[in-house]
Design a protein around this nucleic acid. Structure first.
Lengths: 355, 355
DNA sequence: TAGTCGCGGTTAAACGTTTAAGTCCGCGCC
DNA sequence: GGCGCGGACTTAAACGTTTAACCGCGACTA
């Protein structure tokens, strides 16, 4: 804490912070009375109540949050971290999500503290640190997966947290997630309804739970419609443009009888890869090939052709998460531990044509 | 603070938080000694030093941050807010910027507190609130402009803050900015070097300072090269895809002798609008029309053709801002009040051809 | 031998709140 | 008139740190 002495002196001089004691003196009462009035608890006569309120107003008094928090053994802070997006990818919902949780938190008088972590180990270490030093009252996780070490650790410690995303079904912890399975099923049904029968799915690697749900939706829709699924149509790749590009090339090089006429991509980024592959092979998306993405990234509507996609109700996700987390932090029972929200299919030119 | 009593009891039971007193008892010394050891200030014999360290380790002790902050009259928190991006736009650098500042802050043992604000009034009110209640030690502003009320208010209050972006030249406050003027000049020189003479500029409305600098770079480059500038080539629009689209259409409808063969757009979003307009008019970007954007959004490389753009050194901006702000918060003199960083021209197919 | 000094610790106050417990006073009741 | 009671306010402890001030003691100096 070197050098903090000078800083403190300076702060003292510059910022004449007014404390509860100043208000008490000004109103001619004790600090306790001031506190009671300001938290309108306790029995205070209307007359002194007004006197205190007036004094507080006159001095421009606001209770010091740190002091209040110390005494209340809380911080009114919620921690959120995410892995930085690699330069060749984009995170279409971070902006919205951060806004949603921060806004919802503010309604309950909480704030959101963001901290970076390059690796999962670093993230776990930071959790540990923040819990031990009482930096935050709870955490918001996102992008959870099977066997997620963060979920495991936090539930084992019994520290309040909520997750955007699911994990092992047998683990009981509060989460909100998008029903990707339902969404993809609806999207594929939309493709089938438009006349497609050979539909491929750009899926994520096997270790991705979110990817598994989305793929499941695809399989279900095909099965429900009685359409056969060629093994080659289920193409697993990383969530990368270039991988999706290559994979799509291979799909479009299949013999005519097996070649898909529609592709369901697990993300907009992958859909862009597919779009570019099709373009480079002279296949016109929106006429010869239908394409649907996932996320409804802001760019989706500006692509050529505009990309159909599944829009996630991010604002509601954030809102729900915060309500759960705040309940948890304040020791109230959480009404609904598991919430599954439906995405919305946005149909644009990339898939809006009869085949 | 209703209902907090139960929460506190529960917390007490669940989380057996270990305090400095526990460590003192365990090591058989006073709390002062523990504190001196842990902050390695003060003179403590090596022997007790070890005993204290050992005790702290054994109990898993971490100092409670709230208590420490209360005593130090600081919060170790830096506030950052941004206006939510409208759904039809995207914020290409938020992700990076947030990461950069949070990471840099962490190096100095600070954390970043994010809070939303829909309007500028709301933002100002929140600043006021946070200052009065000592919620944060300083603020990071972004997207500043001429007569920026936030800059005005905070510097008048004398509260520590730094800004990503400039404001009125006569105002003296610490900022870091990207030299958009230099960047655009380089980009336009690149276009000229490729053989273009009729170059248009998609500029922002007159009230945008950032837009003014970028436009200035364009004008300079043209002047330096001795090229005349047709008034129609300076096309001001909002930072919107659709506006840029319409404007580009009009540019391309100009008579052949006045029609631009290259367009410098003030953002990637506008460049996409231009790209789509050209495409719809049958003009091939990357062969008949050159195009350069600004920001180097993650999608830029995946567009057809890949979009040339000016990449901002966001990580460095964040790093510099935090160093300045931390100095400010700790009462140290700020070494360099104004920092102007150069963007990097990323040349891709949209402009990489001889005309 | 007395005074001084430095070492290695402790004591206690302070940071700004909240809140349980206590005090004082006037009033009504038996 | 004594007692209990409730209203209105105060006292003081507590939250968990940091740190200025103090203290005892042995060694060194004059």
């Amino acid at each position: 804490m070197c050098g903090s002495f000078l800083a403190r002196v300076v702060k003292r001089l510059i910022m004449a912070t007014v404390t509860i004691r100043d208000v008490a003196r000004e109103a001619g009462v004790s600090t306790a009375t001031v506190s009671y009035v300001l938290n309108n608890s306790g029995r205070v006569s209307e007359q002194t109540r007004q006197r205190v309120l007036e004094a507080a107003r006159r001095l421009g008094y606001r209770a010091n949050i740190t002091a209040r928090n110390l005494q209340a053994r809380e911080t009114r802070l919620l921690g959120y971290t995410w892995r930085p997006t690699p330069p060749d990818q984009f995170n279409p919902v971070l902006d919205q999500f951060l806004n949603a949780i921060a806004q919802a938190a503010a309604h309950h008088d909480y704030r959101v503290l963001t901290f970076p972590s390059e690796t999962i180990e670093e993230e776990l270490a930071t959790y540990e640190d923040m819990v031990l030093s009482s930096r935050v009252d709870g955490f918001i996780l996102s992008n959870t997966n099977l066997d997620d070490p963060r979920v495991r650790k936090l539930s084992q410690k019994g520290f309040p947290f909520v997750a955007f995303g699911r994990a092992n079904p047998e683990w009981d912890f509060p989460w909100v997630d998008i029903d990707g399975r339902w969404g993809v099923r609806k999207a594929v049904e939309h493709l089938i309804e438009r006349g497609h029968e050979r539909i491929a799915c750009l899926a994520w690697p096997e270790d991705s739970l979110t990817g598994a749900y989305r793929l499941q939706g695809y399989v279900e829709a095909m099965k429900l419609a009685g359409l056969p699924v060629d093994a080659a149509w289920i193409a697993r790749t990383e969530n990368k443009h270039d991988d999706a590009y290559e994979t799509t090339r291979r799909l479009l090089e299949l013999p005519a009888a097996r070649r898909p006429t529609a592709i369901m991509a697990s993300s907009d980024l992958m859909a862009m890869g597919a779009m570019n592959a099709a373009h480079d092979m002279g296949v016109e998306v929106g006429r010869e090939l239908a394409l649907v993405g996932f996320d409804d990234a802001p760019v989706a509507r500006y692509l050529r052709p505009p990309l159909s996609s599944l829009r996630q109700p991010i604002a509601e996700v954030g809102e729900r998460l915060i309500v759960m987390l705040v309940d948890l932090c304040q020791g109230r029972p959480v009404s609904q531990q598991h919430v599954l929200l439906k995405p919305q299919l946005i149909i644009r030119a990339s898939s809006d044509f009869r085949f």
